[in-house]
């Protein structure tokens, strides 16, 4: 999906825990998620900390949309 959207000209920040797989299948802007069963969250954290973690992941994703990449890249 990420590739098809990008080929339509839309930059896509793909947040996934399987970041290596995403890179090998050719997604271009990849952000590593927290866990498969809670990609953008962490139930072991207090609610406020979990929200901060989620916000940080989304910030990374938004920065990724502004980042020029040459090919499949995992953006820290």
């Amino acid at each position: 999906m990420a590739k098809e959207l990008e080929s339509a000209g839309l930059p896509v920040a793909y947040i996934t825990t399987l970041d290596g797989l995403a890179r090998s299948v050719g997604a271009n802007r990849i952000i590593r998620g927290q866990a498969i069963v809670n990609v953008v969250g962490d139930p072991s954290l207090p609610l406020a900390d979990e929200r901060k973690l989620r916000e940080e992941l989304v910030r990374k994703a938004l920065r990724a949309l502004e980042t020029p990449v040459e090919g499949p890249t995992i953006l820290a």
Partner: peptide, 15 residues
């Protein structure tokens, strides 16, 4: 659809 709605970028999440 997104292009029609003048969306500029996408955040995609998945496991």
């Amino acid at each position: 659809e997104l292009k029609k709605s003048r969306v500029d970028g996408v955040i995609l999440t998945g496991s």
